[in-house]
């Protein structure tokens, strides 16, 4: 993108920052994948492992914050470097949130496994989960290549998530109305679906940060929003 700094160590520090973000992204991605797998396979020990692994994500976020603090204080970055560093610290916060949602889903999955759950509802969660998983992978890929068109594509595709969430919301409502014994599971599934939908929103935030980092401009338009009808009275 741009040539080397006169102070070579600054380049090394920026590269180290990117490496940490990538590591954190990989971990968040794995946490989401494993939480979905745990739900799919009703694997309590996997859920517990997801919960335990969240600490590592938090630890990297702290490392990134310390690293950024030092770079800001010692390098007084400008222009593209300043955007690089600021977007990195925001990405770290976003990835930490994503991992948190995955952890929360793992916690809820343990409760789910103790009761009866409508099998089709589980399929719905898995489907929206895989959609978001795909977007997260794509956005991290766009990040590693500073690929603005790819980031913009991810950003536009969040609408699919909103629509899938809307469908799942109605579906879960129907199961709960049909059989009140599913209300406990249904409510947990509602929260899980919402968590996944929120991960999708965070993915679009990362896409926006990539565009800002590279171009210096925010997105010109509002993101297309699907699923608005669930907020209107039936």
């Amino acid at each position: 993108m741009v040539n080397e700094h006169l102070f070579k160590r600054f380049d090394d520090e920026l590269a180290r920052l990117d490496a940490k973000i990538s590591e954190m992204g990989g971990l968040a991605e794995a946490q989401l994948a494993r939480s979905l797998q745990a739900i799919r396979e009703r694997d309590t020990s996997l859920s517990e492992s997801v919960i335990a692994s969240d600490a590592r994500v938090d630890a990297i976020e702290t490392e990134i914050q310390d690293h950024v603090l030092q770079m800001l204080a010692l390098r007084q970055p400008m222009a593209v470097d300043l955007r690089h560093i600021l977007s990195s610290v925001k990405m770290a916060t976003t990835l930490e949130r994503i991992a948190d949602y995955a952890k929360n889903n793992a916690k809820r999955s343990i409760v789910l496994m103790q009761g009866s759950v409508p099998p089709r509802a589980m399929t719905g969660i898995d489907r929206i989960g895989r959609l978001v998983q795909g977007l997260l992978t794509d956005v991290l890929d766009a990040f590693s290549k500073n690929d603005v068109p790819a980031a913009e594509l991810v950003w536009k595709r969040d609408e699919e998530i909103d629509d899938a969430y809307n469908g799942l919301f109605r579906e879960l409502l129907t199961y709960m109305m049909e059989d009140p014994r599913t209300i406990t599971a249904g409510t947990h599934l509602m929260f899980m679906a919402k968590n996944i939908e929120r991960i999708g929103d965070h993915v679009t935030n990362i896409a926006e940060l990539i565009v800002f980092r590279v171009t210096g401009s925010p997105f010109a338009t509002d993101r297309p929003k699907g699923g608005g009808e669930i907020y209107r009275p039936a």
């Binding site: 741009v2 102070f7 970055p77 400008m78 593209v80 300043l82 401009s217």
Partner: peptide, 14 residues
């Protein structure tokens, strides 16, 4: 924050 010319970018970012 966002210079237009590449030469400006290079100079101010060292």
């Amino acid at each position: 924050t966002n210079p237009v010319d590449q030469r400006t970018q290079s100079y101010i970012t060292g």
